[in-house]
Design a protein around this nucleic acid. Structure first.
Lengths: 215, 215
DNA sequence: GTTGAAATTAGTACGAA
DNA sequence: TTCGTACTAATTTCAAC
C-alpha cells in the first residue's frame, strides 16, 4: 500500500496550493463524511457505503488527497489510556512584536495539542494534555512563563469533554447543494452581533497564516 | 481489509472498559507516534519504521485497537478547502440543573467540533466551524441562545491556528520509561499555582463523564 | 516474536456510456 | 469526460515455526 497519510507522497503537486479548484459534489462529501470517522476503511467498503464503484472511490479519494482537501490520516488516541488524564486551556497575552518567537517556542512543547490566535480579551488559546494537574502548573510556570513573548497567562482545567467530533463538515454534505467551490475570496455578509472582534491591539498576524502541520 | 476504523468490529470486548491493563512499552508508543500522523500507513511500512516484524506490528496495532488505546482512525480535512473558513470559540455559562439538555442540544449541532466543561469564569467552551462570520452570529443567536440551559455566551473569533497536533503523546514515548500503565486512580501531587480551579458553582458533572464519540 | 503462504485489497489499464 | 470492469501487484492476516 502506498502511504496515503502524507499529503505529497508522489512528486506531483509540490508547489503547494496549485489546483485550488476541484469542485466537490455530494459523493465527495459523503466520502469525507465516512473517512473522517472511519479513516482506515478499505476502498471497497468505502465505495459500497457511498454508492459508487471501487475505482471511482479510489479516484475520488486520491483526488481529494492530491488537492489537499484530505491532508492526511490520523489514529485517534484515547488520552486516558495513555496516561494523559488532564486537559487544560491556557489563555495567553502575547507581546505582539515577539510573535514569531512565541510560535517557535510552542512548536517545541510536546504537550501542546492546539493553539489558536483569537480576538477577545486574550491573544491566544493553548490546549495542553498532561499526566496530572501538577504538570499543568509546571507547563505554565516553567515553560510558558519563560517565553519572553508571553506577557500573561490564565489557565482553566477541562473537567469533562462533552463532545469531540473527528472533523466537522459543512451542511451541504447533508443537503443536496454541490457547494460552489471554496473560492479564494468568498467574503460572506458581515454582521457581528455580540461577538468580540478585534481588540485594541496591533501587529496581529493575518487570518490563515502558515498553520504548519507536522505531516 | 477488515475495518480497523471502528473500535469494536469484532464481537470481543463489548463490555466497555474491561482489559484496562495492556502495559504499553516503547514500541507501543512508537507505533502510536507514527500512526497519529500517518494513520493509513501499511503494516509493513509501520513495522519497518518501528523496527519490529510485520506480524508483530499487526498484533500490537490490533491489541491497541481492541484495548481502546486507539479508538479509531480519521481523515484530516482541510477546513478551508471545504468551505468552512471560520472557526470560533464560544464560552458558555450554563444553568447547572439543565446540563443534560445542554449536552443533547449540542449533539444536534453539526457545526460544533468540540465542547469542554471547564473551571474558570465560564462553564464550557465550544468550538465551531462555519462558512463565514455571519454564520457564527446565527449559531450563537439562533441556536445557542435558544437552548434554555444556556444562560450567557461570549464569542471570540479564531484569527489563526498556530498549532494543531493530530494527537499528543506523553513524554515517556520519547524517553525510555515504560510508563507504569495508567492505573485507575493515579492522583499525582497537587499544586495549583495561578490556575483557576473550581469556581463557586455546584452540580458540576464529574471529571470524565461519558464523552460519547460517534464512532 | 518471526517467517512464509493464502486470502483480500489496492492500484492501473482499458473499454463503455 | 467520467464511470465501471478486469487484471496485476501489493498488503493483510493467519497459519506453523
Amino acid at each position: 500500500m502506498k502511504d496515503l497519510s502524507t499529503s505529497d507522497a508522489q512528486g506531483e503537486r509540490r508547489s503547494g496550493r496549485i489546483g485550488i479548484g476541484l469542485a466537490l459534489d455530494a459523493v465527495h462529501f459523503k466520502i469525507l463524511d465516512v473517512l473522517r470517522s472511519h479513516g482506515r476503511l478499505s476502498m471497497a467498503a468505502l465505495a459500497e457505503r457511498v454508492g459508487v464503484s471501487r475505482a471511482n472511490a479510489y479516484t475520488r479519494v486520491e483526488a481529494l488527497r492530491a488537492d489537499g482537501v484530505i491532508s492526511g490520516f490520523s489514529a485517534r488516541v484515547d488520552y486516558s489510556r495513555v496516561g494523559l488524564e488532564i486537559c487544560a486551556l491556557i489563555f495567553v497575552t502575547v507581546r505582539q512584536e515577539l510573535w514569531k518567537q512565541f510560535r517557535a517556542a510552542l512548536a517545541q512543547m510536546p504537550e501542546v495539542e492546539y493553539c489558536a490566535v483569537t480576538t477577545g480579551e486574550h491573544d491566544a488559546m493553548i490546549q495542553i494534555r498532561v499526566a496530572d494537574v501538577a504538570a499543568v502548573h509546571r507547563v505554565v510556570t516553567d515553560k510558558l512563563s519563560n517565553i519572553p513573548a508571553v506577557r500573561a497567562t490564565e489557565t482553566v482545567i477541562v473537567l469533562d469533554e462533552v463532545l469531540r467530533r473527528p472533523y466537522v463538515l459543512p451542511p451541504a454534505s447533508q443537503g443536496a447543494e454541490p457547494l460552489p467551490v471554496p473560492a479564494p475570496g468568498t467574503p460572506g455578509a458581515s454582521q457581528f452581533g455580540m461577538t468580540r472582534f478585534i481588540r485594541a491591539a496591533d501587529g496581529r498576524p493575518g487570518l490563515r497564516g502558515d498553520a504548519d502541520q507536522e505531516d
